[in-house]
Nucleic acid binder design. Sequence first.
DNA 1: AACGTCTATCGTCGATCAACGATTTGATCT
DNA 2: AGATCAAATCGTTGATCGACGATAGACGTT
Lengths: 108, 108
Amino acid sequence: MAKKQSQKKCDPSPAKLKADPTAEELAKLAWAIAHPARVQIVRLLIGRDACMCGEIVDCLPLAQSTVSQHLKILKESGLIQGEVDGPKVCYCVNPKRLEQLKRLVAGL
Amino acid sequence: MAKKQSQKKCDPSPAKLKADPTAEELAKLAWAIAHPARVQIVRLLIGRDACMCGEIVDCLPLAQSTVSQHLKILKESGLIQGEVDGPKVCYCVNPKRLEQLKRLVAGL
DNA sequence: AACGTCTATCGTCGATCAACGATTTGATCT
DNA sequence: AGATCAAATCGTTGATCGACGATAGACGTT
C-alpha cells in the first residue's frame, strides 16, 4: 500500500500497452459511428438493405458533398460498401464488419 | 443553418431522421472509445474494477497530461467516473453507461 | 457526340483533437 | 507551516474534422 510502482509496473514489457490490435480496430470502428449523421446513414442502410447516395442525401439535412464524405469514412472503416450500378452507386452495410463491431463492443 | 433544404421526398415521415436522440447518444458514446488509448483505458478499468490515474499513466506510452485529457473525455461521456480518494483519484467504469453503449450497438 | 444525371473530389474555412511541457491545484504527511 | 506527491489545467503547436460550394469524372440516354 502506498508503494510506489516504480518496479510494479502494470506491464512488464517496456512496450506497455502498445501492441493492442483489437484496441485500434475497435477505435477505428467506433470512430466510424462517432458522428450522428453516420449513425443515421448506417441505420438507414440496415433498414433498407441497400440505398443510393442520392436517397441518403435527401434524408439528411446536409449537402451532397458532405454526405459523400461521411460515406467515404464509413467505407474506409469497412462498415459499408458501395457497388457501382450504372451512373449511381448502391450502398449497403457489410454484415461481417458490423458483426465485428458488435462483438468487440459486447466483449468490453 | 440549413435553411435552404426544403423537405425533399425522401420519406413520408421525415421526422424519423430529424429527431433522433439515440443517434446522437450512440455517436457520443462511440466517440468516447474512438481512440485506441481510450479503448485501452476502458479495458484497463474494466479488468481492474478500479484504478488510479497514476497507474493508467504508467500503462500507456503517453504523458500524464495527455492521459488526463483522455480521462476527461471518457468522464464527459459518462463511461467512467472518478471519485477523489485522498490525494489520488480512483477511476472506475460506469456499468449502466457501458451497458447502454452495448445495447445501442447491439441494436444496430 | 453531346447532354443530363449522379457521385466523387478539390479547395477553403473555422473548429476541434491530440500531444506535450510547464504550471497550478488539492490533499496528506512530517 | 512547509514539503511532497498526485491530478488537473494552461498554453501552444500541428494535424484532422466537418461543413460547404464548385468542379471534375463516370455513365446512360437522346
